[in-house]
Nucleic acid binder design. Structure first.
Lengths: 226, 226
DNA sequence: CCGTAAATGTCGTCG
DNA sequence: CGACGACGTTTACGG
């Protein structure tokens, strides 16, 4: 890991072309050769960057007002050209590999909790399987309701239009299967946007807002019993 | 801008919870209070972060093996807690505001070029308007073909399934308008994924792969004439 | 390696 | 401020 603060000009030529006029910025060079150029604001996204795997070629320059020119290139031939006018700070250190991030609360957990607590979706439901496979991708939960009819459940953290489209595609396909049809759809999310709800209900898809904390609470309570 | 290299533990509690075990990492504190925690590899996305606007509270610690505890919080109450065990490097510098990035080659440009060179889509077409407004959003290009029939064009850099869905929604709506219908659809992109092509053609939508460089070349040549 | 779906997506624009 | 679509989306996961 090398950290530079430098007055620099940066050009990217690849999927698009982008140019950064000269200004002081932070340049981060990671162990895998990737390069990030950050300004002193904005979000976590760098102004410009090159993702690994890539190679860095660093060349001194004789030109007036230019200290070095870095050419960072990946396999696809995309290039990031960093022209360094003046180095203001330069520090390098080995960090080693990171143990990595542990996450909780993403869609996968919501799916697991709902699979264990189907009553949050409907009374008397039975789980056929999670990640029920279809030709165009897996259905989050495939169930049978109390009447034994098929229900395809699409789970999202935030329910938006594309989630409804996704479920619609599944339903269209599943309803061609004589062993399953008729299959109805349920769109379950912690939050459902109004547009998504309108579209879903227009297509006969039921919307259910689920409470992650409540599901987790029940789960924890059950865990403590055993 | 403050750059730290430190052995640290990081916890995020907000839209999800996430934990980083102790390890040496780079911590970037920007002028707007945002904090990024980077490892020495991966891509431009930090392991953990807090986006602006947010506030940082830095507290010394008496605990054994803990130097400082930072609590970064945003308006929504999401928290990033950085526990610093040992500072390995620390540097701070004012960078000022960045002049910002200049881009070229994105979808807007492709749309402009196609609007000027409709013959790349079909002979004898007339442009009705770019960004043709509908209740559910603007259609990239609304045209009339040589027979005077309506054509809705959806433009993408990379043509994938959701682009086809988007165009399908527009067509469904537009075909209810007696002044326009029948409206056919054209899906134009620099690259069209096989699945997207199958879905589009299944719905009677024509797929056209456009050559950005060629369009730009013609455009440049025309520009030089005037 | 391709394809799909998720993301603490982020970022711009427009109402 | 919310909604919506683009993004050099990036990233993870499965066949």
């Amino acid at each position: 890991m090398r950290l530079l603060i430098a007055r620099c000009t940066v050009d990217y030529v690849g999927r698009l072309t982008a140019h950064l006029p000269e200004a002081p910025r932070v340049i981060m060079v990671k162990a895998d050769g990737s390069v990030l150029v950050h300004s002193d604001g904005g979000s976590y996204k760098p102004l410009n960057w090159m993702s690994p795997p890539c190679t860095v070629r660093m060349a001194e320059s004789e030109d007036d007002g230019i200290d070095q020119v870095w050419t960072v290139e990946n396999k696809a031939g995309e290039q990031l050209i960093v022209t360094i006018h003046e180095i203001l700070h330069d520090h390098e250190r080995e960090l080693g590999t990171d143990p990595g991030l542990v996450k909780d609360g993403v869609e996968a957990h919501l799916q697991k909790l709902l699979a264990e607590q189907l009553d949050a979706l409907g009374d008397g439901w039975r789980l056929i399987r999670r990640e029920f496979p279809t030709a165009i991708g897996p259905v989050d939960l495939m169930c049978r309701d109390a009447q034994g009819l098929s229900v395809a459940v699409e789970i999202k953290r935030r329910g938006e239009i594309d989630g409804v489209e996704q479920l619609t595609r599944y339903l269209e396909l599943l309803n061609r299967d004589p062993l399953l049809q008729p299959v109805r759809g349920v769109f379950a999310a912690q939050e459902i946007k109004p547009q998504a709800r309108v579209l879903a209900e227009d297509r006969g898809i039921e919307c259910i807002v689920v409470d992650y904390d409540a599901l987790r609470g029940v789960d924890d309570a059950e865990s403590r019993l055993f």
